[in-house]
């Protein structure tokens, strides 16, 4: 997901690449505003480009472009929350994916992850359960996030899940109960469940 500006530019049409160069320049400019300066009227230019990335870069490259814009502009917590709350599904995913690289305190970033985990949009859930969630969700919320991924078919056999699942007996119990419920209903147990369950037994 964390692709560089050069990798992204190589994927874009000449017009898309020109657009991205201008957008990133505007995002860079936003970081030079004096701290505490009064907000300028209207949304900053880079935020308008954040909204327009799909039509400018194409739906496939838009997510990487948005993440790059966020990492470049480094918006404060209030701006990040606003971009998320007023964002489309695609924009919200980009905010969630950028969280590890933004200067937010855990109590500023975690509520966005929790919001995404309350949805049933698997695109949002998948973007929410990444390194930021692994680092900052408390144990209860983290275990429920893993269970929700398995429940909705979001892949969870990722490195950060592996690290945090090791030796987690309560997670093992929850996974076992979920597997039993699925089996009782005559429904298949997700493949990822066994992988995570095996990790919980390690170092236990």
């Amino acid at each position: 997901m964390l692709i560089t500006r050069e990798e992204l530019l190589a994927r874009l049409s000449p017009e898309g690449a020109d657009w991205l160069d201008l957008a990133l320049a505007e995002a860079q400019e936003a970081t030079r505003r004096a701290p505490g300066a009064p907000p300028e009227p209207g949304a900053p230019g880079w935020q308008l480009r954040f909204a327009a990335a799909g039509r400018a870069c194409g739906p496939q490259a838009a997510e990487a472009a948005r993440v790059l814009l966020l990492r470049t502009a480094c918006p404060d917590a209030a701006a990040v929350a606003r971009l998320y709350e007023r964002g489309t599904g695609a924009e919200r995913r980009a905010v969630l994916l950028a969280l590890p690289d933004l200067p937010l305190a855990p109590d500023e970033g975690v509520p966005l992850v929790e919001d995404a985990l309350r949805t049933n949009d698997t695109g949002l859930i998948a973007a929410a359960v990444g390194p930021y969630a692994a680092a900052h969700l408390d144990a209860h919320a983290w275990r429920h996030a893993i269970l929700k991924c398995l429940f909705t078919g979001v892949p969870v056999a990722t490195a950060e899940v592996a690290d945090r699942a090791r030796g987690d007996r309560e997670l093992a119990r929850m996974l076992g109960d979920f597997a039993a419920e699925r089996t009782a209903a005559g429904r298949p147990v997700p493949d990822d469940l066994d992988r995570v369950l095996a990790l919980t037994a390690e170092g236990a």
Binding site: G89, T122, G123, I125, A126, F151, G153
Partner: peptide, 16 residues
């Protein structure tokens, strides 16, 4: 062009 925006569960992630 429609690409499902995220992984799906048995072809349908609109779950309750």
């Amino acid at each position: 062009d429609v690409a499902p925006p995220g992984p799906t569960h048995e072809g349908n992630s609109v779950l309750r």
